[in-house]
Amino acid sequence: MVISIQHVTYAFEQDAPPVFTNLNLDIKQGEFVSIIGRSGTGKSTIFKLMTGLLTPDEGQILMDNRQIAPGDVGFMPQKDLLLPWRTILENVMIAAEIQNNAMLTKEQAIVWLERVGLKDYVHAYPKELSGGMRQRAAFLRALLTGKEVLLLDEPFGALDTFTKKEMQTWLLSMWQQLKKTVLFITHDLEEAILLSDRIIILHQDKSIEEITVNLPRPRMNEMSYSETGIALRRMLERKISSEMD
Results as ranks from 00 to 15, higher is better:
S4Q: 15
I5L: 06
I5E: 02
Q6C: 10
H7R: 13
E13D: 13
Q14H: 12
A16T: 09
T21R: 15
N22M: 10
N24K: 05
L25I: 10
D26T: 14
K28G: 09
E31M: 07
F32S: 10
F32T: 11
V33N: 03
I36L: 14
I36G: 07
G37W: 09
S39C: 07
G40A: 12
T41L: 06
G42F: 06
K43E: 05
S44K: 09
T45F: 06
T45S: 12
K48L: 12
K48W: 05
L54E: 15
I61R: 00
D64W: 05
D64M: 09
Q67P: 06
G74M: 06
M76S: 01
Q78N: 05
K79P: 04
L83N: 10
L83Y: 13
P84D: 14
L89Y: 03
E90M: 07
E90G: 08
V92Y: 02
M93N: 07
A95Q: 12
A96E: 03
E97Q: 14
E97A: 08
N100Q: 15
N101Y: 02
N101C: 03
M103C: 08
M103L: 10
M103Q: 14
M103F: 06
T105S: 11
K106W: 01
E107Y: 00
E107S: 08
Q108F: 02
I110M: 01
I110L: 01
I110E: 03
L113T: 00
G117R: 01
K119T: 08
Y121P: 02
V122S: 01
V122F: 01
H123Q: 15
K127A: 13
G132T: 04
R134S: 05
R134F: 03
A137T: 02
A137N: 02
A138L: 02
L143H: 09
L144T: 10
L144C: 11
T145C: 04
L152K: 07
L152A: 08
F162N: 13
K164W: 07
K165W: 11
W170D: 13
L172C: 11
Q176D: 14
Q177V: 10
Q177L: 11
K179S: 12
K180D: 09
V182I: 15
V182W: 11
L183Y: 10
H187P: 07
H187G: 08
A192H: 03
A192P: 05
I193N: 00
I193K: 00
L194N: 04
L195A: 03
I199R: 00
I201H: 01
H203N: 14
I211R: 02
T212I: 12
P216G: 06
R217A: 06
N221I: 13
M223F: 11
Y225V: 04
Y225R: 12
G229A: 04
I230V: 15
L236T: 03
L236Q: 03
K239E: 12
K239R: 14
S242F: 04
E243Q: 15
